[in-house]
Design a protein around this nucleic acid. Structure first.
Lengths: 101, 101
DNA sequence: AACATATATATCGAGTGTCGAAGTATGCGA
DNA sequence: TCGCATACTTCGACACTCGATATATATGTT
C-alpha cells in the first residue's frame, strides 16, 4: 500500500468525505506534512473503489458544485489497520535498534 | 523517502554491506516481507550515493566475484531516523485513533 | 551428469504511482 | 475586481519498482 492510499483511508476512518475534504483532512491529520495532489487522490480513489477498499457513499450538489462522498469498507478498515501495524514494525526497526558502540 | 530507500538504509545501520547482502538483510529485518528487487536496489543505491546518504566503503574481490560495500553517512543516519519518526507518527494515526461508537 | 539454487553485479523495458497544471465553476473577502 | 478557497476531472511528465536478462562461480539435488 502506498503512502497516499494509507492517508486517504485514514482520512475516511472518521466518516465519509468528498475528494477535496480528504485532501484537507490528510493535511490536518499529518500536521501539514501530507497533502496528496489532486491527480494522486483521484487515481488512488479509483483504484481503491475498484479494489473494494472504499465505496461511493452518496453524491450531492452543494452551491452548484458536485460532491462525491466516499466511505471506507470493512475490507478498507482491515487493510489500513494491517498497514498501520506494518509501518509501526518498520519504524521500530530503526527506532528500537540496539546500540552499536 | 520510499520504502525501499528506508529498508536499504536500515540494513546499513549495523555496518557496511554489499548490494546482495543488503537485499538479504532487508529480508531478515522484515521477516521476509521486504525483498527489494535488484533493479530497485541499484537504482536506490545510485540515488542515495548521489544524495550523500550513503557512500562506497570499499571494493573487494571474493572468489572472483566483485563486491562493493556501502556505508551510511551521517546524513543518511539522520534521514532514516527522521523517516522512522514520521512512519511511527503515521502508524499512530490509525492505531491510536479515538473510538467512534 | 544435468539442473537448480545461492551468491554477486549491472542494465533495460514495462508497468505503476505521483505530481502539477489546465480546464471548469461558484462564493467570499479584501 | 482580483485573488483565494472550494470542488471535480483529465492529462502528460517524471520517478520508482519490478522482473527479466546477461555474466560468472560454487554448492547442493536429482
Amino acid at each position: 500500500m502506498s503512502e497516499a492510499t494509507y492517508f486517504i483511508l485514514a482520512a475516511l476512518l472518521d466518516g465519509p468525505l468528498h475528494g477535496y475534504g480528504i485532501i484537507k483532512r490528510a493535511g490536518e491529520q499529518s500536521d501539514g506534512r501530507v497533502r496528496p495532489a489532486v491527480g494522486t487522490l483521484y487515481g488512488a480513489l479509483d483504484r481503491m473503489a475498484a479494489g473494494g477498499l472504499i465505496a461511493v457513499d452518496r453524491e450531492e450538489v452543494v452551491d452548484g458544485r458536485p460532491r462525491r462522498y466516499f466511505r471506507v469498507t470493512d475490507d478498507g478498515v482491515a487493510a489500513v489497520t494491517k498497514e498501520a501495524a506494518r509501518m509501526a514494525a518498520a519504524a521500530s526497526l530503526v527506532r528500537l535498534r540496539p546500540v552499536h558502540p
